Structure formats: C-alpha cells, structure tokens
Amino acid sequence: MSETPTPVWDGPTRVFHWALVLLLVVAWVTAGEQMAIHRGAGYAILGLLAFRIWWGLAGGSTARFRNFVRGPGAIRRYLSATRNGTEGEHAGHNPLGGLSVLGLLGLVGLQVVLGLFAIDEDGFEGGPLSDRIDFDLAQQFAEWHELSFRLLQGLVVLHLAAILYYAVRRRQDLVRPMITGARRFYGPVQGLVRAPIWRLVVGVLIALAVGFAASRGFRLG
C-alpha cells in the first residue's frame, strides 16, 4: 500500500455529500410538524442537486459523470471481476458505485420535485407549486412524495450495506476518504484532477439561484 495518500475527492464533492446527508435528516425529522423548516431543507436540497449536476459536468475528475457512469456491459464486467478478485482499484466510484450515485441523486430529485407540488389533506400546508395544479392531484403528489421517500430510505440502507461490505470483506474504508479527501492504494492510481476555482463559484451561484427560485415558487417579481 502506498505510504502517501492519493487525493480522490475534492472539497466541493465532500461538502455536497455531507450537506445532503444533513439536509435529508432535517427534512425527515421536520416532516409534518415543522413544515417551514421542512420546506427550507427541500429548497436547499434542490440547490445542492443543481450544484451536483453542474459539478458532474465541470468539477473535479472523480466527480464528473463521464468518469464513473458506465453502461450495463461495464457493470457486468466489474461484477465478474469482483467475483474473480481482479477488479482493480478506482480513485473514484467504481461502475457499480456510479450506478448507486445516479439512483440516489435521481430519487432525491424526484422526492424534492414531488414536494414542490404536494399539499396536505386539509390544504393548509403545501409546496410552492401546489396551487398550480388541481387539489386532488396535489394530494396525490403528497402520497407519491411519501412513497418516494420510503424508496429513498431503502436505497440509503443498500448504500450503507455496501459501505459495510467493503469495510468488512474487502478491507476498504470508503467513509474516511469522503472526510479527508484522500486514500491509500496498493498500486499506482490516477488521483484527483481538480477543477479551477471559477467553476466552483459558478456552481455555488447556480445552487443559490435554484434554491431561491424554488422558495419563490419560480415566480418572477
């Protein structure tokens, strides 16, 4: 194993990861009782997702979608190599991990979008876009909003189970690198190539703009 840790995750990716975890917990514990906080968490999550999409296109090398999103063939080959113990090491997400990332981002995005249109059965608490659709449909959105969260919980459990599997069976700590940004490898691995700071500034502005627009119901003026 290398003596010097190799950089694998840049700061923006790590901040996004832990901020999303925190905001999902906040949204969970405030649902139904503290709706102002719940909605605020949802707007912040939507801004984070907008940032992650931008960062997946213009961010550091390990955060870019093109570097970890793979097709079914690549995933099958990775699973086969895993069974044979010949899968090698990855500085970022492996093909199966990339699939998990897309699933989590997609479900979180669906959860937030459904919440924008959802309204409670009494019509007192609703998302900023609930008044743009029929009341019964808005209530249906609320049911889908809850269902999608159950699905998200299931995917999070699978995600945590995979982390535990790699820690116990493969002796690979996947949590520490998401905190420190670096990891030790057994062989030479191409580490993180950082993005210029202006791209981070653009991403932050996009996140703020999307979160603010959502809080205003995407209304002008």
Rank of each mutant, 00 (worst) to 15 (best):
W28H: 03
G32Y: 08
G32R: 05
G32N: 12
I37F: 14
I37C: 11
R39P: 00
R39E: 05
G42I: 08
Y43F: 15
I45V: 15
L48E: 02
L48G: 05
A50M: 04
A50S: 10
A50T: 04
F51K: 03
F51R: 07
I53H: 05
W54M: 03
W55I: 01
G56Q: 11
L57G: 03
L57V: 08
A58I: 02
G60T: 06
G60E: 03
F68C: 02
F68W: 13
G71Y: 02
G71I: 04
P72G: 01
A74H: 11
I75N: 05
Y78P: 06
Y78T: 05
L79T: 13
S80P: 01
N84F: 02
N84Q: 15
G85P: 08
G85Q: 13
T86P: 02
T86E: 13
G88Y: 13
G88L: 03
E89C: 06
A91L: 07
A91E: 07
G97C: 01
G97V: 05
G97Q: 05
L99Q: 01
L99E: 00
S100T: 15
V101L: 14
V101P: 07
V101M: 12
L105C: 09
L107F: 12
V108E: 10
V108W: 12
L110Y: 05
Q111H: 10
Q111L: 11
L116D: 01
F117I: 01
G123H: 06
G123E: 08
F124P: 00
F124V: 15
F124L: 15
E125Y: 14
G126V: 05
G126T: 03
S130D: 09
I133G: 01
D136N: 03
A138Q: 08
F141S: 08
A142P: 00
W144A: 12
H145A: 02
E146H: 13
L147S: 08
R150L: 14
R150M: 14
R150Y: 14
L151P: 00
L152G: 04
G154F: 15
V156W: 07
A161F: 10
A162L: 12
I163S: 07
Y166P: 00
A167G: 00
V168Y: 09
R169G: 00
